[in-house]
Design a protein around this nucleic acid. Sequence first.
DNA 1: CTGAAAGCGCTTACAG
DNA 2: CTGAAAGCGCTTACAG
Lengths: 368, 368
Amino acid sequence: MRLSGPAAWGGQTELADETVLRRAPTERDVAKLAGVSQSAVSRAFTPGASVAKDTRGKVLKAAEALGYKPNLLARSLATRRTNIVALAISNLENPFYVQVVKELSDRLHETNRQILLFITQPGADGDAMLERVLSFKVDALVLAAATASPALAAEFHKSGVPIVQINRPSGLSGISTVCGENELAGERIASFLIAGGHRRFGYVSGTVESSIGKARLDGFSKRLKGHAEGGIQVAYGDYTFEGAAEAARKLLTSARPPDAIFCASDYMAFAVLDVARRELGLDVPADVSVVGFDDVPEASHPKNNLTTYSQPASALVVETIRILDAMIEKPGRPARRREVHGDLIVRGSARLPARGIVTEDTQRIWRE
Amino acid sequence: MRLSGPAAWGGQTELADETVLRRAPTERDVAKLAGVSQSAVSRAFTPGASVAKDTRGKVLKAAEALGYKPNLLARSLATRRTNIVALAISNLENPFYVQVVKELSDRLHETNRQILLFITQPGADGDAMLERVLSFKVDALVLAAATASPALAAEFHKSGVPIVQINRPSGLSGISTVCGENELAGERIASFLIAGGHRRFGYVSGTVESSIGKARLDGFSKRLKGHAEGGIQVAYGDYTFEGAAEAARKLLTSARPPDAIFCASDYMAFAVLDVARRELGLDVPADVSVVGFDDVPEASHPKNNLTTYSQPASALVVETIRILDAMIEKPGRPARRREVHGDLIVRGSARLPARGIVTEDTQRIWRE
DNA sequence: CTGAAAGCGCTTACAG
DNA sequence: CTGAAAGCGCTTACAG
């Protein structure tokens, strides 16, 4: 290629300049133009470093002239900080996780960090893929709707890279987790539905393994004890729209269909609403009440008008970053577990109890 | 901190080992354990490098024992290739762009590359944010539902970083673009609606500046010439759900409401469908036909059953990567423009013409 | 405040 | 096939 170049350009041979322009300018180039040392250039771009105002000015002017941008990768090599956070996520079809990604991106940006994206398969633990994370020497790994295997967790722990799982309470010692009020939410939704006069209950879970799904069901069934005719009917929606639709069909066409269905996510609740109304011609909530989880933006839309339990993505992300930073700061620290506060948001998809509904911050919530 | 450590541990002072374990293992560590040179370790991890099988074996074993992972950032510094592609995206609420992200992530992964994510504000050109891209020395920048300003484009061009815009045909010389068949789609949808017996037409565009929106409208109005009573009514939905709902209200409650509405994206078409059916109690398509653009997965769902023009995310991404790689390979190359083929997908949200509907690959499409 | 120098963890001619 | 060495573009004690 070196040889064919000049020939292809018709025998012209002024390659020298070309070569110079080809390469992105470095601190050395800036230093030469500004008439200072390379270290001076480095200092001019390091907040808080000791440089004379005058020197800094000359450097910045020269940098501007050359279009110099500090090479963050080289900086990372020297500082052992990449300012890159890996995000593994499996369920971007669910608007809740879109919110999480967006919030995380925004918040990290405030401290000049970026997301390195790993989209994993919902089922797989994504270990093979996440091995690569270690090679990129990211500052931390965030898992959203994705689970780290014990082996992977151990490897990260050994290499000192903090992991925070969002919405996956994990028993693994090295992994911090941030969740919503899963069990409490289940209890309060149960109370709400009992107060609304319901008798037969269904639960659309995500997957069998889902620990948050289990926690929500635990709270739900604990409070329902003695109030549920024939126990709680559980169906699995796989956290997908189609899966949840199928689960809804199963529940609502069973011998004794539930008159209230709690769904492990708003996204699945939308599918349940559609099956109930459009396919089966049921009246919601007269025939069946539907309650979701997350309070995604679409839940408040008139066409869904979904009663749900909020799990604010922004609070989840703020807490995630707080933990992350603490772990980066002091690598030795044990993992933390945090729950983010939510509320039962009352809308029109579930029958209303006679009392307990209050208005707060423009939304109607329920207090027992 | 150095000082307080040992004291906090009760006066114990065996810090040395601790320090050794703290650091991630490097080629030197592996080399020492394997009894070879550091370069030999490097070669063992470089596909195609000349290493004796035996040497390679020793290295791999030692690496395994130490939990060594090559530092990709250091490699990048030496090779001037980061294997990171920046993706700027503004509209993750729209499922079409979720598909784009997912496809791009999957395809890049096949060649061991990752996405560095930049979520930009829909309105802003995101220049400030994208400046950072240059510092990360990514191999390329992909813009999806995001636009580079001429100034930014020039800066990237100067630094030799290829840019490909998805769905934003750009006049800027340095920028390659990949789009669907915007103008052709507009024409064919117009023909389809004329054949379906419509007379009054509406168009829900995204934003005033949107060049793809303009191209679609151009094709649409060109073919509609002489068939549209009182011209085409245009409203802007801002590519958002709420914006499109508002646009639909405006069109459908006007003095002479359209009997056919073409929407610049499926996502906006969903809002239009909801307003037409639920808010205004119209029958779709008896009272009004609605046609979308993109053919996102939700479009085929029974509840939407949307007639639309396909713009396959996978093909778009494949083409994007092809162009990207060509530009990385030969930096001098002029920008390219590609159109990805689509079809008019016939479903139930628009009245059917008497003829031209054929079945292909399990879907019904329309051929004039 | 400043420059020379060592080092971050790799790759890659070069000489053997 | 292999090792010593230079270099990728930064940061950061160190000495002045």
